[in-house]
Each structure stands twice: as C-alpha cells, then as structure tokens.
Design a protein around this nucleic acid. Structure first.
Lengths: 232, 232
DNA sequence: ATTATGCTTCGGTCTTGGCCGAACGATTGA
DNA sequence: TCAATCGTTCGGCCAAGACCGAAGCATAAT
C-alpha cells in the first residue's frame, strides 16, 4: 500500500518548521525570491536552497527564473487548500488557552486576507454575499458558482477582467472556497482572483508586507457600500 | 506568528511513516487496538505506544480503554478530511507512472469504501444521487443536506436509526463530503453514518479486513435496485 | 495465587536530516 | 574585465527523534 508513503512524504515536507514558514509566506499567492524565503524562515541561503529544491521536486512549489533571481510560488491552489485544512486542524487543538491558536483570533486576518490569490475573511464573504443576494452569482453543484447575465454586466461595470479569467481554461472559473474564519464559502477560482485584482488595481485594498493580511482602504470601504451595498 | 509552528507540528506528526501508516488504517473510521496498529505499522508495541500518545496529545486521535485493551480512533471527521486532502495532493504528483498514485486507481476502492464512517465511492454517490433525485434530500447551504419529510419516511422504512443520529448533537446531521474518486459530494455526518450502519446491519455491505475497501454483497446490489432504483 | 496478555515507561543506541562554512556558477552592472 | 549579487553544490557537524530491550503495571484467564 503505497498510499501511506505518499501521505507521510508530503506531510513530512510540510512538517519542518523552516519549510512550513516558507509555505506560510507563500500562502499569499505571490512568488517570492529564494533569499526572501530564506530570510523569512531565519535560515541561510544554502539551507533554504535545499528545502526549496525538495519542495519543487515534490510538486508543492513551482520555480521561475528571472534574471539572477529565482521566484518560487505554490504549485497549485490544491496545495494552498491542503495547507489551509491543516491549519484549520491545528486551530481546533484542545489545549486550553493554547498560544498556538492565537493567530486564529487575529482580528485583522479575520477581517480581510488573501486566500492564495482571492479575497477571504469578512470582506471576501461580504463581496460573495452581495453578489449572490443581487442575483449576480448562483451556487452550481456543491463546489462551483455560476455567474449570471446580470453578474457579467456587473463585473464589466466594475472593471473586472472577465476575458482573462475565462481564458485560463486550466483552472476552475468560479469556485466555492470554505472560509475558515467565517465558516462559509467565498468565491475563488479565476473569477475570485480577477475580483481581488480589481480591488488591488483600483486601490480599494492593499496587501501588507509579509503576511496574508489585506488592508481595506477608505475608498475600498466606500466602494463596498456603493457598488456592493455592504458595510463591514 | 505561531501559525507556522502549529502547521509544522501537525504536519510533522503525519509525516512519520509509522504514524502515517496508523492514521491510514484508522481512516476506516473504526477504533483499533494499540497492538493492532503496531503490527500493521511494522513496529514494536513500545514504539507504537509512544507514537499514539503523541497523537492523542495533539488531538489527532482519541483513546478509549476497554478491559486490558486500548482502542484508538481518529479524533474527529475533520482529521479524516485533512488526511484525505493530503492524500489527494500526494496523488497529483507529477512523477509520471508514479507508483505512489497506484492506490487512486484501485477499482475496488473507487467502487465502494468507507470515508471515516460513511459510504463513499460509486456506491456512496449512487445512494446520495438516489436520495436527491427522489426528493428525499436537498442541498442546504454549501456544506449540508436537508432531509425532507419524504426522506424521513424513506429512512424509517429502510430501518435507518434516525433518532440516534439526531441525538448526537455535537455533530453535523447531514454533511456534504467531497468524494475524491467521483469528484462529487456524497452524504456524510450523523445521517451518513446511520445509513452506512444500515448497509452493514442488513448485510448489504461488509468491510474488508485491513482496508477502507467495502464489498457490496449480492443482496446489497439487489437492495440498491429495489430501494434506491440504482444500478452500479 | 499464578500465569498470560496488553500496554506503558525508562534507558540507551543509532540513523536521519537540518544546518552552516566554503567554494563555485550564473547573471548583472560598472 | 572586474566586482557585486543571487543562487547552488559539497562536506562535515550535530541534535532530534525513531527504534528496541528490559522492566513494570495493570487486567483477565486458569
């Protein structure tokens, strides 16, 4: 039964503190240089290089060379989701007053963050809820959404790049992603990423330096009200 | 940021081959004795005892003493689902002709297996589909099902112990669980477990020795036709 | 009582693998 | 061409932890 080995190999890769630190940083969905990841994990470049090579080998990460830099990112949304599921599990540990669960109570992280490449937290839920309540989005099956005709018009009015989103055929267009802090689904997939892009491009939200936390700007707060009819 | 430590600690626990082997065995949803788990993992009882204690400490497992035996089981369905997500990730490894992915092609496992404590695979999907198509079950939200009035009558006629299922209030009653082989949701939660129980009690299905594989008996095949209007 | 079985704790061995210093290759800029 | 930067490979050091033998403590069977 090789299923056991496969499980332990993948888990062992995630089980090293240095590698887990790198994976956590990469959970923001962006690509980071090797030295960036090394510094963040508190190890030297040589050591990091070995870790990164092993994770690329195991298809957890993808690497892209650019000049003398080398950028690493999570290999797929599946990897991100597996990491999220482990984090959620870690959060439910019984240890009373466990410090390990402190991050789950981080109010900024619960308010707005990136989940791989789309918006999550209260803001992600607010956007998703607004779209469904206005009939722009409908659940389709148990894991997808369907963008209605009115939804297409709404997105175009907002400046969401639907064409590019549709063109990435290798990827689910509109996916339901379970939000660990809100315990409800928000929108992910190519459409979710395109919507998040719009938020960043129009200055409604900005990523924080070294974390998944996203700050909603004042204009973003206004936009949520005027475009989505939501207050957060 | 302690989220990193939490992630690496949980993953490291799953990352040891012996522990992964135990977890895999426990994925059948049943409780196993310490010696059973030790033998299955190919290690001595002392070593296994240490592993088990650590996993209980981390709330991955729950232990129950019975006579001079000690039974261990997965602590929650969440643990089972996290393991499934890692296994799914391991299955998508690029390695061409990888032996690690062989188990994903096991036809018996795809046909019928236990997923923690309910039925999965083609049979699990067939049961779920039949219930929804006859209006006994309706999707509720993105992660649950609702048992309709006709569904209650149907279950009672079948001999499903709805009272007990309802009484386990600590648990979701009817949950959608994504089937990795069929890529569609089947029914889990207390109701899913009660339905699986019925299949075993009435001799429609039987668990195989040391695996998650479930064999559908001849009477089970007939029952699927007569009660559920399904052929598999 | 005595013996057998299941499980655990303790102590010690040994392998695995993470880590860094040093050296090297590749790319960019002066 | 020379220097600076980023990344990698190599070699050796070292600690974490997986493993087992021996012993102890329950519970159950005779």
């Amino acid at each position: 039964m090789t299923t056991v080995n496969a499980l332990s190999e993948i888990a062992a890769l995630m089980g090293d503190p240095a590698r887990a630190s790198m994976l956590s940083l990469l959970m923001d969905g962006r690509a980071h240089t090797a030295s960036d990841l090394a510094h963040n994990a508190g190890i030297t470049a040589q050591t990091a290089s070995g870790h990164l090579a092993r994770m690329v080998e195991a298809n957890l990460l993808a690497a892209r060379a650019e000049g003398r830099n080398r950028f690493y990112r999570l290999a797929s949304a599946d990897v991100a989701h597996a990491i999220e599921s482990l984090m959620a599990l870690a959060g439910t540990r019984a240890a009373p007053a466990s410090k390990a669960a402190a991050w789950r109570r981080d109010p900024d992280l619960r308010f707005c963050r990136t989940c791989y490449d789309h918006l999550a937290g209260q803001v992600g839920i607010a956007v998703t809820d607004s779209l469904t309540q206005h009939g722009h989005l409908e659940p389709e099956g148990s894991r997808d959404w369907r963008l209605t005709h009115s939804g297409e018009l709404f997105c175009e009015r907002l400046g969401v790049d639907l064409d590019t989103a549709r063109r990435t055929s290798s990827r689910h267009f509109a996916r339901q992603c379970l939000d660990w802090s809100e315990r409800r689904p928000h929108i992910s997939g190519a459409l979710g990423a395109a919507i998040a892009d719009t938020f960043f491009k129009r200055g409604w939200a900005e990523r924080l330096r070294r974390s998944r936390t996203v700050r909603l700007t004042d204009s973003g707060r206004r936009a949520l009200g005027s475009h989505f009819g939501a207050t957060v």
